[in-house]
Each structure stands twice: as C-alpha cells, then as structure tokens.
C-alpha cells in the first residue's frame, strides 16, 4: 500500500511533469516521482517534517475547494488546484510548488532522456 504522503507527491509530480513535458510516459513519470521522493526523504529533518505537514494540507485542502482529496481529483482539477497554489498569495504555498517543480524538472531531464536513448541528453 502506498503511503498517503507518497501518493500525494506522486500525483503532484505527475501534474508537474505533464506541464513540462506532456509526452513523458507513465514509467518516466514514476522514475521522476521516485527521485523526488528520495530527495524529500534525504532533506534535513526539520524541512522534511514541514514538507510532510504541508503535503497533508495540500492533499486535504482540496476537499472543501474541489470535493475530493488532491490525489483523488480528476487530472484537469488537479492541474487547476496546483495552479491555484502556484499563484497563491501565501509564500509557503508558492515555495512548495517551486521546490517540486525544480526537482521534477531536474529528474525529468535525466530520466526521460535515459529511457528514450539509453543515456541522458548530455552530461
């Protein structure tokens, strides 16, 4: 069973990867999500606690706004919800999306190219 936090992050990464490169296939998206989850697991413990709490808020705050938890929303609703956080006036919400975007992008360039050509685009 996938823990709730991991499911939230995987769903979020799926949205972010889709924004950056809609052609990325499910395997590549999963690779990127694993990389980002490994990064979160290794980050300083006080940040990790903050990210877990923020992730829970991100997941549950979708209920009053969209009727379901974030990870249970339809893809279009997930994209709209992420966009709402990205444009939020609350800096920590923007910062969370910026963090995941940066690391998803980094993972995307390595893992997507690896899957296609057997090696990164360039190192």
């Amino acid at each position: 069973m996938v823990p709730r936090f991991d499911r939230t992050v995987c769903s979020l990464i799926d949205v972010l990867v889709g924004e950056v490169n809609p052609e990325a296939d499910p395997f590549q998206r999963r690779e990127v999500a694993h990389y980002v989850l490994a990064t979160v697991a290794a980050m300083p413990d006080h940040f990790r606690l903050g990210f877990r709490i923020l992730g829970m808020i991100f997941e549950l705050a979708a209920i009053p706004l969209c009727g379901h938890r974030f990870s249970s929303l339809w893809p279009d609703d997930q994209r709209a919800y992420v966009e709402r956080w990205r444009r939020s006036r609350v800096s920590v919400q923007r910062a969370m999306i910026a963090f995941y975007t940066a690391f998803a992008t980094h993972g995307l360039y390595q893992y997507v190219r690896t899957a296609r050509s057997g090696r990164p685009l360039a190192t």
Binding site: A102, H106, Y109, P120, L121
Partner: peptide
Amino acid sequence: STPAQLGMALAGQKDAWSLVREHW
C-alpha cells in the same frame, strides 16, 4: 550548463522544456 542544469534554471519560464530541448 547541461540540459538538466539549464532546465532547472529555466523552470520558471513558459515552455522551458521545448526551449531547452531545442536550444540547449
């Protein structure tokens, strides 16, 4: 200045993926 570094640096730009893929 690998594509990954450029991609992270341009993460805030519109169409960053195609920008980097085509122009890195």
